[in-house]
Design a protein around this nucleic acid. Sequence first.
DNA 1: GCAATTCGGTTGCGTTTCGAAACCGTACCC
DNA 2: GGGTACGGTTTCGAAACGCAACCGAATTGC
Lengths: 152, 152
Amino acid sequence: MVRKRFPDTHCSVARALNDVGDWWSLLVVKEAMLGTRRFVDFQQNLGIARNILCDRLTRLLENGVLVKQDVGEHGTRYEYRLTDKGRDLFTVITALRQWSDRWNGESDGPELVDRANGEPVRPVAVQSTDGRTLDVREVIYRDSSDTDSAAG
Amino acid sequence: MVRKRFPDTHCSVARALNDVGDWWSLLVVKEAMLGTRRFVDFQQNLGIARNILCDRLTRLLENGVLVKQDVGEHGTRYEYRLTDKGRDLFTVITALRQWSDRWNGESDGPELVDRANGEPVRPVAVQSTDGRTLDVREVIYRDSSDTDSAAG
DNA sequence: GCAATTCGGTTGCGTTTCGAAACCGTACCC
DNA sequence: GGGTACGGTTTCGAAACGCAACCGAATTGC
């Protein structure tokens, strides 16, 4: 049940979406960042169908975003935990969350604060080497190869 | 053909995915950031089916990510351009692109550089108020309401 | 004036994916 | 042995997807 999507594309964004581009995958990762590790907890907290959850977990394992650990406490127990690659999606998810809050109105969900001092985090932004925040019109997509200019 | 998905959810991430969460939407936005504005150009550059493109463009218009302008040069001509809301997805897309390049290997696609000086942009990151880069384990999802602790 | 072309779609139709609920197998508890 | 919790798998109807053909308006070529 593995999707073909774009098995080999020059576009980094499309390749990222191959890993986490469908509706549920990012939500599973987000849920994992909130501390959820058990199959039933993912299922209940997200309201996802069991078979779909099973498929997504399998694909996230295959893609190296999650790892599965047997914690055989009571009967069959597994934990799904984020890898470094999965934890690195924190930036993407936070950017998405902030974007939604800016343009679709604040949610009444939890607020993201710095554990060290309790202050909210900065808005995620693309920055230049000297720290300026860059708009899309202030950058250039410079071709590093001549083969495919639409690969962006 | 509008998806219901999660019409009203407390989760900001899920609400963001309602707007741009399916496979093609983010790629359409990415393509728009590369300068593409015409229906046929989106279709050819992305390799997307016409009806799917039509549906995605309509939904992106409805969600305020794109605007449609009649530029009646030759026959029926429209341009699809990013709104401020759409341009603000630059951060999300850049974070996704950098994540893919870090973990799935560099693509041979274009490189993102500062127009002002030609230098590559910084890695996108979640930062504290004093500029430290924050990992997911260095933050807390602090409930601002008591109604739904799983809304994250 | 008339055919061909371009653009922006829409329609049909077959395939893939999704989602809800029921079912399965193992391990624990008693 | 019965009951329960967990982690799936199966079944099946509904929705979404992708391809290709078609459509209507305006432009170009002659």
